[in-house]
Design a protein around this nucleic acid. Sequence first.
DNA 1: CAGATATGAAACGTTTTGGTTTCACTTCGT
DNA 2: ACGAAGTGAAACCAAAACGTTTCATATCTG
Lengths: 132, 132
Amino acid sequence: MAEPSPKHDVFQAIADPTRRQVLQMLADQEMPVTAISGHFPISRTAVSKHLRILSDAGLVKERKVGRETRYRLDTSPLLELKRWLAFYERFWENKLAALQRFVESDDSAGAGADAGAKAFLALLERDDPAER
Amino acid sequence: MAEPSPKHDVFQAIADPTRRQVLQMLADQEMPVTAISGHFPISRTAVSKHLRILSDAGLVKERKVGRETRYRLDTSPLLELKRWLAFYERFWENKLAALQRFVESDDSAGAGADAGAKAFLALLERDDPAER
DNA sequence: CAGATATGAAACGTTTTGGTTTCACTTCGT
DNA sequence: ACGAAGTGAAACCAAAACGTTTCATATCTG
């Protein structure tokens, strides 16, 4: 019942590179169709159809303002993707362990270079409790 | 040069439900084509083509053993997906805002319980500057 | 009101996709 | 050696995906 009858699911919606770009554009700000399509080599109508698909997947919400329709990002459907991904994260453990050993080895000379890796590891660990 | 010329990328590979099921099956064990296709209503050849696509995306590795080809999961390409997803996590503001309010309210009695949450928030904030 | 702007819907065309059936090749077991 | 088992490649098909052009409609703006 709670299902919004997703004619297009998230996996399918993000499969197309153009749609991923659209999502990225909408990350910063709400935008009408024409403004969006201005950034692509394809027609406005084509972009409109991509937006429809994103909308079907729930990744985008629309709001009519006068004669224009403004689209904004809604990331909540990405939760499903995150959960799907989480299942496979337990298979990364070998790699993670290796990376962790490297990061934590105090003999690593360049200290600054590790920041990213450390943040990355922390991030992964933070996510883990959701699954398993 | 480093690019493995991904004729099919990860996003595309996981877009199909059948392929996601195949991945899930391979999570537990290495399997030959026939064994895999036994779990699907489609032909063995069809499954074989799905495996090809997964292989193109790097999600599956194959190993010939006698007359059979055993496929096994390789999750490393999912890292790209994870990174893509991570970008959008900062938009899960509702959850973050709620957590932040909770953490910053000084009337919270149990001080110890906040440690994890604080680290969590700090981590997120530190990640932000990457984009924008 | 009249023209410009913003957009979705419809009709249509081309390419991909997901599937099938058939065929050829290699390897295993007797 | 010979038939069975395990696969991939090829040819073919229907449906979906992605794009375009054209048309209709609603809303601003002067």
